[in-house]
Design a protein around this nucleic acid. Structure first.
Length: 416
DNA sequence: TCTGGGGTCCTAGGACCC
DNA sequence: TCTGGGGTCCTAGGACCC
């Protein structure tokens, strides 16, 4: 048996933990630059605020219903996530952290009343972190997803649902719309509707040949999993295979120098993560684009993959190639609104064999270590790569909660 | 002058998730 | 005025080799 545990409305719940007056009130969290809604409390959902809603379109509704609005505070959420995951790791010999707010637990060798076990996790997490969770338990990962959904949908279940009989499995799958199945997106849902498949149960009855043809091996695995035959395996914690740093800007940039400053910043952030997992990269991708919502006729978007002749984790070296890439796709007289750098093609630092001729400059290693140490101690981006442009980009975060758990200057005050 | 077929690696792009 | 930022896996097709 497996369990899927996920945090309810995670970012909104994090904000509530440190501000209990938000309980029972509608809460939303906005993306970087306060662009769109990325998390909603149940009360906010009930007001009809959709995921991804542009914040400016809902300003009036926010005010009218006294919605509490927050700028995303990712360092706080990351820290809360680590606490939740750490507690949950005690409930299983094998944990797969699937995203910031959810994990799978392999319950192999754990011989208990599963419902009781799920309720215990829930109480434990709530008491120690203040975060409410939902638990789905079933013989396969895909069925755990279904069980978890049921646990959330029916409050009388106390946040925990177990699928442990054939009867429960079929009942659950008949209840679930096929478009809500984990792994079936908009495209495939459309194809399935077209041939009369409405529920998850209908999907399990499709012939393998059809599934293989239209949804490839991924579809076959999903179908088996839903039938109760474990086919989607637990993934052990592994290093990232690519590291992306991309942002929309709060304003439009036209000059090469401004864009170079942005790209350099993204490269620095990415390279820091790269070093943190002891990897070096051999390729990177740079992309830039103008505002896709404005002036559609002049929309320009381009990307380029740049090969680095030797594996490196040095911000200085990686940045040189990122800027080369930028040069080749940058066009004058355009208003750029978004850009990003994706580091790819990693090798392990420990397994790296130096080349006879082309190598990363070893002097950079120590320099990077010092930079990482200082940035970790005093906050990100204290040390930055120099650029001719002195201006420091500032993200729009008008409604940021304090960094209660991660910044010593903002630690919560307790009054005696 | 003829020019098969199998294998691997690389890359771009599609689809999906949270 | 204002529209997120990450990730993963799979497949097809081209390049190249023998």
């Amino acid at each position: 048996m497996f369990a899927l545990v996920d945090c309810n409305n995670f970012y909104a719940s994090c904000e509530r933990v440190f501000n209990p007056s938000l309980n029972d009130k509608p809460v939303v969290v906005l993306s970087n630059n306060d662009g769109c809604v990325i998390a909603r409390s149940n009360e906010a959902k009930a007001l009809g605020i959709p995921m991804g809603a542009p914040a400016f379109e809902y300003d009036l509704l926010f005010r009218r219903h006294n919605v509490k609005v927050f700028s995303a505070n990712f360092s706080l959420y990351g820290d809360m996530s680590a606490r939740v995951m750490n507690i949950l790791s005690n409930y299983s010999p094998m944990q797969e952290i699937h995203s910031i707010d959810e994990c799978f637990l392999d319950l192999i060798g754990i011989d208990v009343d599963y419902r009781e076990y799920g309720l215990k996790m829930r109480e434990h997490i709530l008491k120690w972190t203040g975060i409410p969770i939902g638990v789905g338990i079933a013989p396969t990962k895909a069925l755990c997803k279904v069980a978890n959904r049921i646990a959330k949908k029916f409050p009388q279940l106390g946040g925990v649902h177990v699928i442990d009989t054939e009867e429960k499995r079929i009942k659950a799958l008949k209840w679930l719309d096929v478009s809500d199945v984990w792994g079936i997106g908009r495209r495939n849902a459309k194809k399935l509707y077209a041939i009369g498949v409405k529920t998850a149960y209908d999907f399990t009855l499709l012939p393998e040949s059809w599934v293989m043809k239209h949804m490839t091996i991924t579809g076959i695995r999903l179908q088996k999993d839903l039938k109760g035959i474990p086919s989607i395996e637990m993934e052990l914690p592994e290093k990232k295979q690519s590291i992306a740093t991309t942002r929309s800007f709060d304003k439009e940039y036209r000059s090469f120098d401004e864009m170079r400053e942005r790209i350099t910043t993204f490269t620095s952030l990415g390279a820091e993560k790269l070093r943190a997992q002891n990897s070096m990269c051999k390729r990177l991708m740079v992309f830039i684009e103008t505002n896709r919502f404005k002036d559609e006729d002049n929309f320009y978007s381009n990307s380029i993959v740049v090969k680095i002749p030797f594996p490196t984790s040095s911000t200085l070296e990686i940045n040189k190639f990122a800027v080369t890439g930028l040069k080749s796709i940058f066009r004058e007289h355009r208003n750029y609104k978004r850009a990003g750098v994706v580091l790819m093609d990693f090798v392990d630092t420990s397994e790296y064999q130096p080349d006879l001729f082309l190598n990363s400059n070893p002097k950079h290693t120590k320099l990077m270590q010092s930079i990482d140490k200082l940035n970790k101690k005093y906050g990100q981006q204290l040390i930055r790569l120099g650029s001719q442009d002195k201006k420091v980009h500032k993200m729009k975060q008008e409604r940021l909660s304090r960094a209660f758990t991660t910044n010593i200057n903002e630690i919560i005050e307790v009054k005696a």
